[in-house]
Amino acid sequence: MTSLVDRYVHTALRRVPEQQRADIDRELRASIADAVDARVDAGEDRDAAVTATLTELGDPDKLADGYAGRSGYLIGPELYAPWRRLVTTLLTVVLPIVVVALVILDVVDDSSIGDVIGTAVSSTLNIGVNMVFWTTLVFVIVERTGTVKDKLKVSWSLDDLPRYEPSRVPIAQLAAGLVWPALLIAALLWQQFGIGETPVLNPANWSFWWPCLIVLLALQGAYQVWVWRRAAWDRTVTAVNTVLELAFAVPLIWLLNSDRFFNPAFHSFAKVGSESDVEHWLTLLITVVVLVGTAKDIYDTARRGERARRGL
């Protein structure tokens, strides 16, 4: 049977860098033998002396950490704050954007509602876990490489202090925020009832989707007034804005990409070029504009909310 001392030394050396092992092995054994001898000289039984000495030396893994100069933590206090900030930003800003993009792709693909929910849930979990894992891994590596760590140390100055000023929306922005939905509603109504010719957009959608979008546009107008009166940006505003934007953009993109948007009876596109081509490019153009516009608006509002929350 392997002796207690052998087992202890092996266990400690397991986690010590290879090139130091032989030397530490010898030194540690000598130190243990010295301590045991001292106890035996003081009248203790040899086995009891070994047990007492090793117990006093304590957890061999901790001893190995001491020899190898390892820290007993993954991320130390210096890097914890930047790590936390980055993970928070990734999970609250980047993750929602990525998940929304994936959901929109699914909707464009005409997937069933079950598939869309599946995509939302699985991508949230999957990407979220990956984000936290890889960020943490990078920080753990940085924690263990001195030079990079020194460079990452952010020097703090008085300019970084939050200002705590109320952030009122400029009146011009409120006006723009009201005029834009009103114009869209007017255009939607006009092309159906105003021109007196064949409507450009699919009249079949008046049964549900066009009224729904009109209500949403009206809500966006109301939202602008609400934000203006509130005079503060925070996570509630971010959430309301995101819901409103998505409620508008997702059905619109779905209608566009499932050929439900344009009126099949509208043939004036043929004047410009091949009808299917024009419809195809228009669909693509509107989709891209809506996608980019929605993403930018959600991002801007979220960013503004975060900055306001931190008092910048």
Binding site: Q20, A30, S31, D34, A35, K62, G66, Y67
Partner: peptide
């Protein structure tokens, strides 16, 4: 050597554990 230093230090009134002192010497 390690153990002699440990003895000297504790006789002089320094509370030090073997598992801190030995790695410290190498450092």
């Amino acid at each position: 050597y390690g153990y002699s230093l440990l003895e000297t230090l504790s006789a002089a009134g320094f509370e030090v554990e073997a598992n801190t002192l030995y790695p410290l010497l190498r450092r």
